[in-house]
Simulated assay, not measured.
Amino acid sequence: MSLRATVLTLLAMLAFAGNSILCRLALKETAIDPASFTGLRLLSGALTLWFIVRLAKGDSVGKGNWISAFALFAYAAAFSLAYVQLSAATGALLLFGAVQTSMIGYSVARGERLSTMQWLGLALAIGGLIILLLPGLSAPPLDAALAMLGAGVAWGVYSLRGRGTGDATRVTAGNFIRALPFALLLSLFSWQSATLDSMGIIYALASGALASGVGYALWYAALPLLATSAAASVQLTVPVITAIGGIVLINEPLTTALVVASVTILCGIALVVLNNKKTP
């Protein structure tokens, strides 16, 4: 892997982990509500991606579609709602597991054959999610966990719809812009419970502009420089980076259940993506 690819990939993974950390910080440490966080995140992400596309391409965005935009909005809204109660690490692990499992499940449903090792990996990943959700002192609240699993499925749908659609940065910018009316409707629907403060706004804007907008642009710049296997496996670092960030920045505990579930889920998904016969 070249130095440029390494730097772009590292910055993108830090940005993706930063989304979980910023959202959890905002909803735990400030007064901002999930709907307002979602709206500000999507707005700042749309503006940032629009600016990046204009700067790099010199033309209008003009890409994306409404179904993908709704999937993007559903992901962002459920993500924010879940982080009212979930720790940064638990949320990232549930999200990552749901994204990968839903995409793998879609491929199987479409007729793709998995090897024995891939089936074992899928079973491990699902088992890890079950371990994480088992009732006990360290189990996350079920409603929040289900919200994050829903966010993961929505992001899986968004990712599947984005395959082969051309310039990924332009498409993402267009979808962020199209997601704004949905965010506005959510804000209007929940305006009576809306609360804002300066730090919450800053966290939300940073999540949209830096962790989302710049993060996606960096990742799409790195992807052409990576082998498929490297692109798939490097994403396994995001829940790990998030867990470290949660411990250091938010003083979150590292539980035994989280460690066991993390190792099980990440090893399971690694078995699936690294044993893909289509991977060069």
Rank of each mutant, 00 (worst) to 15 (best):
T30L: 04
P224F: 06
L8I: 12
L124M: 13
S102Q: 01
L133H: 03
S2H: 12
E112T: 11
T90R: 00
D143Y: 13
T101C: 11
S102C: 04
R170D: 07
S233L: 15
R41I: 02
S80R: 06
S2V: 02
L93R: 10
L137V: 13
A77F: 15
G164S: 05
L210S: 01
S190H: 07
I130K: 04
L225Q: 15
V272P: 09
Q85E: 14
V260Y: 07
A12Y: 10
R41N: 10
Y83C: 03
T165I: 14
L249F: 15
L95N: 05
V157N: 05
R110D: 10
L205E: 04
S44F: 15
T9I: 04
S80H: 06
A5T: 06
G45L: 08
I265M: 13
G174N: 03
A89T: 03
A46K: 07
G127I: 11
T256G: 07
Y203P: 00
L223A: 11
Y83F: 15
T195R: 15
F51I: 14
G97P: 06
S233K: 02
A35T: 06
P181Y: 10
A183I: 03
L122Q: 12
A227Y: 05
L122G: 09
T116G: 14
V263P: 07
F70M: 08
L25P: 00
T101K: 00
Y158A: 08
R4I: 11
T90L: 04
A139F: 02
M148Y: 08
S207H: 08
S20Q: 12
C267Y: 13
L25C: 03
I32Q: 03
V7G: 06
T172F: 15
A26P: 07
A230T: 15
A31F: 11
M199V: 10
S107L: 09
S20I: 05
A26V: 00
I32M: 04
D197V: 01
L254W: 12
E29P: 01
A270F: 13
T101P: 00
V214R: 12
S36P: 00
T101Y: 01
L3G: 05
T279M: 13
N65Y: 12
I177V: 13
L274Q: 14
D143M: 12
G213V: 11
F51S: 10
W155G: 05
A211M: 15
G268C: 09
L186F: 04
L95G: 01
Q192T: 12
I21M: 04
L184P: 04
T6A: 15
T30R: 10
L94V: 08
N251I: 09
C23Y: 09
T101R: 00
P135H: 08
I177M: 14
G128F: 09
G152T: 04
I201A: 06
T116E: 10
A12V: 11
A209Y: 10
